[in-house]
């Protein structure tokens, strides 16, 4: 496998996974919670990194994802139980956790080789060099595997959980009356978002994960009348945005993550313009 292909596939798998989950965040008006999770996982990553001394280990993924879920639970408690305004709850939780992550990384700077640059912007260009071996056989880039497994997980989750996700996103109260555990659906979605965030973190960093979660889904929302097409379109926009972004950044020799996020934004602007135009004409 060529390095180029490995990078492109990793970007695409990550983008599609985030786009599909993002569709539900957009519908639940919870994209900022996605943003919060993507920042809140940083201390989890720092601690897990200190303990396991490797960036791509299973314990690290799980530890960091757990912190993401913890953040959503804290946000829930702050806003529902203690009546802190919901945007303030989100803002407080993720800035505090993110700051804690920054503190930990700088405090352990001699032991934890995570520089701020890669935390913020990812290092997808290095994906091909970080490989793993099984029984003496080289298995290829770790990030390619993890993003591939992530995509598989997301697809299974969305297919099997489709009815529950639809119902709890559209009408929480009605679902609750039917005895369908709304809290459990919310938590499962946030757990998936946390896992996706942690896995994407490596490739695109803390700032741009949220672009992958929000932009394709928000674009799809503009032109979809049904949920299934919206999910498919979000996945498609994730794919096209990451592919185009990668190609452009390779051409111009710029940050790949930056290129991808910019393309996602351009796509959104384009679709928005078209829909506005067709509405007024």
């Amino acid at each position: 496998m060529t390095p180029t292909l490995a990078i492109a596939l990793t970007a695409i798998f990550t983008a599609i996974s985030c786009a599909v989950l993002g569709a539900f965040l957009v519908l639940r008006k919870m994209t900022m919670v996605g943003d919060a999770i993507s920042h809140a996982v940083l201390p989890g990553i720092a601690i897990a990194y200190l303990l396991s001394q490797s960036r791509s280990s299973l314990p690290m993924f799980l530890g960091a994802a757990l912190v993401g879920v913890f953040a959503t639970v804290v946000i829930e408690i702050l806003s529902k139980k203690w009546k802190v305004q919901s945007d303030a709850s989100i803002g407080m939780t993720f800035t505090t956790l993110f700051a804690l992550g920054v503190v930990l990384i700088t405090y352990w700077s001699d032991k934890v080789d995570l520089d701020q640059e890669c935390v913020l912007y990812g290092e997808i260009a290095f994906v091909p060099f970080n490989t793993w071996t099984l029984a003496g056989q080289s298995m290829g880039p770790i990030a390619l595997w993890s993003s591939g497994i992530l995509l598989l997980l997301v697809l299974i989750y969305t297919f099997t959980g489709y009815k529950g996700l639809l119902m709890s996103s559209f009408n929480e109260d009605y679902a609750a009356v039917l005895g369908i555990g709304v809290g459990a659906w919310n938590l499962s979605l946030m757990s998936m978002v946390s896992v996706a965030t942690v896995i994407s973190f490596e490739s695109v960093g803390a700032i741009l994960v949220v672009a992958l979660l929000v932009a394709p889904a928000a674009s799809a929302y503009l032109i979809s009348q049904k949920l299934k097409p919206m999910i498919l379109l979000a996945a498609l926009f994730g794919l096209s945005g990451s592919l185009l972004g990668y190609m452009i950044s390779a051409q111009l020799d710029i940050s790949i993550a930056g290129g991808i996020a910019t393309m996602l934004g351009v796509q959104f602007a384009l679709i928005l313009t078209i829909t506005q135009f067709s509405r007024t004409s």
């Binding site: 959980g161 009815k163 119902m167 559209f170 679902a175 039917l178 369908i180 929302y221």
Partner: peptide, 19 residues
Amino acid sequence: PADVMDVVLMGRYRKNNLF
């Protein structure tokens, strides 16, 4: 993003047929 039938079908969702 749902049509009328999608919403009415939600009346058929149950705990034990959700999956």
